[in-house]
């Protein structure tokens, strides 16, 4: 695993290097970005928010990293405790937020646990960068990882509302079920109200006309789609 650090204060650089020995240290955002682009594998990136007294450089760097790299884990190490976790988590999907202004033992403990969590996360992703898929959402669109999507279903109350069920979350967007199968070949319509991600189907029961997903959810399969579904899942 490769570790990268963006930090301009020499003392802090040494402090972190003391905890993580094989950490590559940068004090220029551009140099860091170039190095990150060169390294294709999943990494753990530690960022300071304030570089050379310019506020929020770290945040912008994080956003730039996210444009080309979605699997690396970002940890923010900063004195700026007023930058609140939630926003950062939302914007850049960072994993942890560590305040520099705490006693050394605490700091070490927090940093190590954050790094362990980041490594775990990377291992869970298997180091493969998943395909991003853009789902239309009214006039805007919503980007999701293809292998995160389990199935999609229309809402009971409104036909143009759609719920996308992912592994860890569900998202409601404004589009029609009908338009989904055209977005990707893995999206299979099994019912007027259901579209499943092909790779998430674990079983198909032609008698009961149900499709079972790998997380245990049972979905009905309409007669209209029975034939096409059978061809896909039953050999």
């Amino acid at each position: 695993m490769n570790y990268y650090l963006l930090e301009d204060n020499l003392i802090q650089q040494r402090r972190i290097q003391h905890i993580i020995a094989n950490c590559l240290v940068f004090d220029q955002p551009m140099a860091l970005l170039d190095a990150l682009k060169a390294d294709q594998s999943a990494k753990v990136i530690l960022l300071d928010l304030e570089i050379r007294t310019v506020e929020n450089v770290g945040l912008n760097v994080a956003k730039m990293i996210r444009q080309f790299d979605t699997m690396s884990q970002i940890i923010i190490v900063t004195t700026h405790s007023e930058m609140i976790e939630q926003g950062l988590k939302y914007h850049i999907g960072m994993i942890d937020f560590i305040d520099k202004a705490q006693s050394d033992s605490l700091f070490t403990k927090r940093l190590l646990s954050a790094i362990t969590a980041a490594e775990q996360q990377i291992r869970m992703q298997n180091g493969t960068q998943s395909e991003l898929i853009r789902l239309p959402n009214g006039q805007k669109s919503e980007s999701l990882y293809l292998n995160d999507i389990v199935y999609m279903t229309s809402n009971q109350s409104q036909s143009h509302q759609l719920t996308v069920c992912c592994e860890q979350k569900s998202i409601q967007i404004r589009t029609t079920v009908k338009s989904l199968p055209d977005l990707h070949q893995n999206f299979i319509q099994i019912h007027a109200a259901y579209v499943v991600n092909k790779s998430k189907v674990s079983a198909f029961d032609a008698k009961k006309r149900t499709v079972q997903l790998h997380n245990g959810v049972l979905l009905p399969c309409a007669r209209k789609y029975l034939k096409s579904t059978r061809q896909l899942f039953e050999i």
Binding site: G87, Y90, T153, N155, Q156, S157, Q158, Q161, S170, Q172
Partner: peptide
């Protein structure tokens, strides 16, 4: 948490106890 960004997004994030069934909330 309420995020207001660049005159184009208002995001309201709250902690909750469980994942909800979005198909019927509205």
């Amino acid at each position: 948490t309420m995020l207001l960004t660049d005159c184009e997004e208002i995001v309201i994030i709250n902690s909750c106890t469980q994942r909800m069934d979005l198909t019927k909330i509205a």
